[in-house]
Structures are given as structure tokens and as C-alpha cells.
Amino acid sequence: MTGSERRDAASAEDRDVLDDVQSANRPEREPVPVTFGRRGFLRGATIGGLGIAATGALGYAFGASSASSASSASSATTAGAAGRATHQWAMVIDLRSCNGCKLCTTACQAAHFLHEDQTWIDVFTMRDASGKHYSMPRPCMMCEDPPCVPVCPVQANVRTADGLTLVDQSRCIGTRICMNACPYQARYFNWSKPRPAPRQPFPQEPAWPVPQVEGTVGKCITCAAMLPAGKLPECVSRCPMGVLYLGDLATDVAVNGIGTTVKLSEFLADNDAVTFKESYGTHPRVFYIPGSGQALDTDAEAG
């Protein structure tokens, strides 16, 4: 278990958390330089694309400076320490035990006062090659390289320092191009008035967008505002089967709602965890442990 050895050594020392994240959980892949990939490419493409606009150069200077300010502001709201995040949130979904009861979906909708069709964590019925049906919960993948973020014209999508992709609904103008960009169909729009919500413990902000704002995009937030308080996300704590784990790549721990605590890297490696649509280059931080779950009726109609 080379991956876990590396991590054991790392956890003892006061190492750069991001280095840790790079090496953790990716025994199968070399650490990728952060500057490479979609974002780096887009930066290059942007400059080319703006050749057509005389305002390009000026705007680029503006955009670049405000991008950094926006991300630092948002990280301050979720990650405790400014600059260095102490957590790198992740999720593990153990498909072997999901029974498709959708309690996660309804718990999420109740907690965030969502309409019925706003299934931030949705449970899909899939079929494996042997013809067996299984259920597959799909929250936001909290991609490390999220395609939904760079497409927003007004920087309403932010990626926080502790690894969450969040939507600033006070800025979103509702172009829905992020819904187009997300390969996981994880984004939901507020097509009508949001469900009214009572006073919330937190003000409406990207980490706790309750109530939702009409005409803006909403999506799973991994209950970002509850995490610093040591609370599990609603879906995780409500899952009766212990399917959903909240993980932290920085501390290498994962916890589910029925009291199981595992060493994240080992759990993933031992169970051959996979990520969804790896070929899309999004590097999801939601890890699936394959399996076809409880004995389901193989003739059941897919949802």
C-alpha cells in the first residue's frame, strides 16, 4: 500500500496540505501540476478569443485581479484559516449498500428548502452488465477541475480553498451555461419562486444558500456551512444504510451517518474506488465504491 505509506509519513509532519492532497488517494495517477489542465488552457484560449474585442486587454487585467479577490473572499467564509485550508472535503459513496430509498434526496430537500424536482443529490437507477439494477446517488462531484466554474461570465461560481465548488446566488445572473458545462447533470435552476424557508442559523451565502434565489442556479454544497461546526451533511447523516461518507483528504478520514469511521485512502484503495466519468478530466472528489447493492428486482423499470 504505497499510497497509505506515503500518507502516514505525511500526516506526522507539518506538511503543506495541498501536497498531501496531491499524493493522497491517487495511487493510480501521477500528481498533476496545478497549472495544467482546463483552467490553464482556458486562460490561454481566453486571450486568443479576446483578440476580437478591443476591450480585451483592459478587461483581462480587471478580471484577473478580481478573480483572485473573489476566491479569497469565498474561502474565508468556509475555510477557517485564511490562505491554507485545513480540510479538503470529499465524499465516498459505497454503492454496495445503497437500497435506493432516496432518504438522502428528501433530507437534502428538506434541509435546503428545495422544490421536489431540485434533487441536489439524486438517486439514479442503473444496470450493470450482468443485468442487475443498482442505485447510484449523485451529489455534486466537487470536481478538482470543475468545468462549471470557468464558464460563468460573472464569477458567480467559486471554488473554495477547502475543495468545494459553490454558487454565489447573489451574483448569478442565470445564463445556465454552467448547467451546460457540468457533465454530471448536478446543477439545478430556480425556475420559479423558491420554497419559503424560516429564519436560518446562517445568512444566505454560497456556503448556505437558503432560501434559494429565484432565477439563479443551485446545487449540492456538501452542506458547506455545517462542516466547520463538525456536523455531517444532511444526506450523509440521514442515510440509513451508511452508503454516504464525508471524507477529508487532508486528514485522511471518512465518516458515514451510522458511525463508521474509516481511513479514507485505505478504504478507497482496498475497495477499488472509482470516480465517475474520469475521461472528462474533472477529477471528481466523490469516490464510488462499485457494487450492485441490495438484491433489487432485476425487472424493475429504470427511473
Partner: peptide, 11 residues
């Protein structure tokens, strides 16, 4: 509003 611009956005 240039401070909000995200120049990597096709929009």
C-alpha cells in the same frame, strides 16, 4: 461591470 468579469467565459 469589469470587476465581475470572468474572461474565460464564452458568454
Amino acid at each position: 461591470w469589469p470587476p465581475y468579469w470572468n474572461l474565460s467565459s464564452p458568454i
